[in-house]
């Protein structure tokens, strides 16, 4: 159970480990895009976790990194084709950031640090915890930016109509600034505990 919980807060991939920053910043213009990106990452982490922990005793350690990369790339291809076939609009909005999950350091990092050393059940728990922690981070950042930029969360109006939409937060600059502020809040909250 500890393997699952740690990804949510104390080792949250976005706010604490600072892994997978590229998709984090790029796709979080809206909470919905953050959620779909998060689900794709959970899928890739989950399949990679199962396969890597199953073959961890067969693969010689010299070629382990290329092997992991091929497993990850295959799993990402599956996720990408699935999104393109079933949710073409979301797939278009996420653009090349779905294939870029291949080089997302969270997945290779977990494969190297955790999946290759633990059995399948612990690996699945770790994959799910990390994936959900990542998704939570994406939804918080996406929601924060969507709220300030459009006054909505998941396209549901939160702020009244006279709210002056702050365009800045849907632009790249706003992405960096929001994440910086959120990390600051997270850190000072953690320190107080």
């Amino acid at each position: 159970m500890k393997d699952f919980i740690k990804g949510l807060f104390s080792q949250n991939p976005i706010f604490v480990l600072l892994l997978g920053m590229c998709p984090t910043l790029a796709v979080t213009t809206k909470a919905l895009y953050g959620l779909s990106m998060g689900l794709s990452v959970i899928f890739v982490l989950f399949t990679t976790g199962i396969i890597v922990s199953l073959i961890r005793k067969i693969v010689p350690s010299e070629v382990r990194i290329p092997t992991y990369i091929i497993i990850i790339a295959t799993s990402v291809t599956v996720a990408d084709i699935f999104l393109r076939a079933n949710y073409p609009e979301i797939s278009k909005a996420l653009g090349p950031y779905v294939p870029l999950i291949v080089v997302n350091c969270i997945i290779l990092g977990r494969a190297e640090a955790f999946f290759s050393r633990h059995n399948i059940i612990r690996s699945i728990l770790d994959a799910l915890g990390m994936g959900i922690g990542f998704t939570l981070g994406l939804i918080i950042l996406g929601g924060f930016r969507e709220l300030l930029a459009n006054g909505t969360i998941f396209d549901i109006r939160v702020f009244p109509n006279w709210y002056p939409n702050i365009l800045l937060f849907s632009l790249p600059g706003g992405a960096f600034i929001s994440l910086g502020i959120l990390i600051g809040i997270f850190n000072s909250f953690k320190r107080k505990k």
């Binding site: 600072l18 800045l168 632009l171 790249p172 600059g173 706003g174 992405a175 960096f176 600034i177 929001s178 994440l179 910086g180 502020i181 990390i183 600051g184 809040i185 997270f186 850190n187 000072s188 909250f189 320190r191």
Partner: peptide, 20 residues
């Protein structure tokens, strides 16, 4: 720099201003 913003926090905020 405020304690919580040290390191990545302030770097990201600077990057945001640069991006603007």
């Amino acid at each position: 720099i405020p304690e919580g913003l040290k390191g990545p926090g302030i770097t990201l905020i600077i990057a945001g201003i640069l991006a603007l």
